[in-house]
Design a protein around this nucleic acid. Sequence first.
DNA 1: CATTTATAAATTTTT
DNA 2: TTTATAAATG
Length: 707
Amino acid sequence: MALAWLKDLNPAQRQAVTFGDGTLLVVAGAGTGKTKTLACRVAFLLERGIDPGRVLLLTFTRRAAAEMISRADHMSGRGTAGKLWAGTFHAVAHRLLRLYGRSIGLADGFSVMDQDDAADLMQLIRLDLGVAKGDRRFPQKATLARMYSHTVNAQRPLREVVERYFPWCAGDLEAIGAIFARYGERKIQQRLLDYDDLLLFWKTLCSAPVVGRNLADRFDHILVDEYQDTNALQADILRGMRQSHEDLMAVGDDAQSIYSFRAATVRNMLEFPERFPGARVVTLEQNYRSTGPILAASNAVMSFSKERYTKELWSQRRSEQRPVLVTCRDEEEQTGMVCRHILEHLEQGVPLSEQAVLFRAGHHSAMLEVELARRNIPFHKFGGLKFLEAAHIKDLLAFLRILENPFDELSWFRVLLLLPGIGPRTARRILDQLGRPGRVDDAARCNGGGRTRLASPLCRLLREPPAVPAGAKEHFGALRSALADCEGVPLPESSSASGNETAVPSGKGLPVRVQIERIGVFYRPIFERRYENAAMRLRDLEQLEQIAARYRSRRQFITDLTLDPPTATSDLAGAPHRDEDYLTLSTIHSAKGCEWHSVHVLHAADGMIPSDMATGDDAGIEEERRLLYVAMTRAKDVLYVYFPLRYYHRRWAHGDAHGYAQLTRFIPSTVRALFEQRVDRAEVDPSSDRPADVRNTQAGLNRLWNC
DNA sequence: CATTTATAAATTTTT
DNA sequence: TTTATAAATG
């Protein structure tokens, strides 16, 4: 084979890429060419004549998969990498379950719900059971959803998970268990799968005697990226998928494990050799990304870690410029400094696309976003609040989901509650009526002579509409005709529809975009009445239509949206914005795997990094340390870490109340010495300029009561 | 009686 | 910006 590009690899990388048959773990530090190695491995396999359709590539995001495929194609020059099975665990699980789900008793027309939907269903059940009635605080729906997911993914008993991660809920263990049991039942009734089910049923698929064997035989090679952020369930799946073939390559960095809240565990990496006996281990330690001083500071942060890591990164990239620790008076000054530095670099020729601002929590960038907008600096924000979380987007999707899976009670509920004059009670009644087992001929007519006895609630709604309160009649009628329109079914004018229509044409042929338009006819008036800033939100709906225009299949549209939600406005923006230079704002979590010429890390204060929410136990604090490490190692040439001294707590009042922060505990004085330290007094208001030791004294006191 | 509106309180990270 | 509860309304 004439593989010229092999020469560009260092010995360790080459060893990984050209690895023969069997199981391999690649321990790859930050910036050591992990993506390159994986892409080369794919190219190498293709060169060896492996059928791309028999290679499975599991990544953390769809974007990562796309990048590796395009790089592999570029190297092999064959253009066949697109035929790989590539995507996230969840996306691949979905694809497999559509193919084989029937064999384990999965309903044909299942649909997938995201974690928000899961929380909403929890809430319905919580209200039904009347669990939250007492005067004791009961966990919120989002907490319940997180708890459930963690339990399933970790494959541990609920009691253990609650005691460890949600100790304040320990008193409600029984009630929580009862909710979870009902939750499982209702998902099955409604033909809904949550994220965890996708993994869970994939695992079930693996252990099915015949299909499991088929599945494992289906792939000659499996490659897994970001292995440090996989959980016990995912490890089980991999084992199930390697019953007959051994060829597996997992790549990860134990120092970058930052998803324990999703039940990810470094133990997957550490125990890899035991789980896959005979596995070889290759370690990549040469960092090609960052300059020496940046790497030195990053390593120093990790050197205080209580856990032992397997490697120490080194770099040949010399530089005089140390990373900069910027001490600011408060968040406002931090914002000003960030903007100033960004513009300085821009003038020196570093485009905005090579710069990024990173932070711990989505809302940490709020002030900066306002300032960037004021100064006309274009940016895209990754992580934090998402497009799909907006109420009006969810409303519209609920319609489509009813059409896709008429048993989806959650979406029905959402849509019915939109109608003025219909509240939870009436909605419940209507749903009960629609869901009641019908006469057999009814069912037959609805399902086109179908297999199921159960008449689809959608068909019921169209054929025998339940009574609604007088005030809701008009809107209810509009809803029915909108749904009928999308289905391509004529709506029976009066209640006595003639029974001899032939099998109704299915609306599945209608383009999704058209369906959204028709729903709009019904939804728009409600929408305008309901939301104050309808004009702004209308643009979101138009964007949704634009995305829909790219899809032929409604099902594909909905599942893509739930499994690969648009992570930033950039995913939504049309062609005109593509070539515009823009700055990246991102949570540290969403910045995983990315790199920029210059990186700005905001809020390096205790309480922010580490987040106050995570300082409960040692493991939590250690993960926060890794988080800072991930943030710092994103930088190639320039790294700024900002530390605002003063925080206003303007939660309820707009007063002047403030507290003094302390520099993050992950940068003690020995580490600080590796930074260039700047305190810009020019912009400090002299009236509030007190010596730092006074502040520190105050801060020390504040720690006594601000816990 | 059910729905709507008013009021007060709280807010990590994501497939 | 959302969410739980209380009061007002139909």
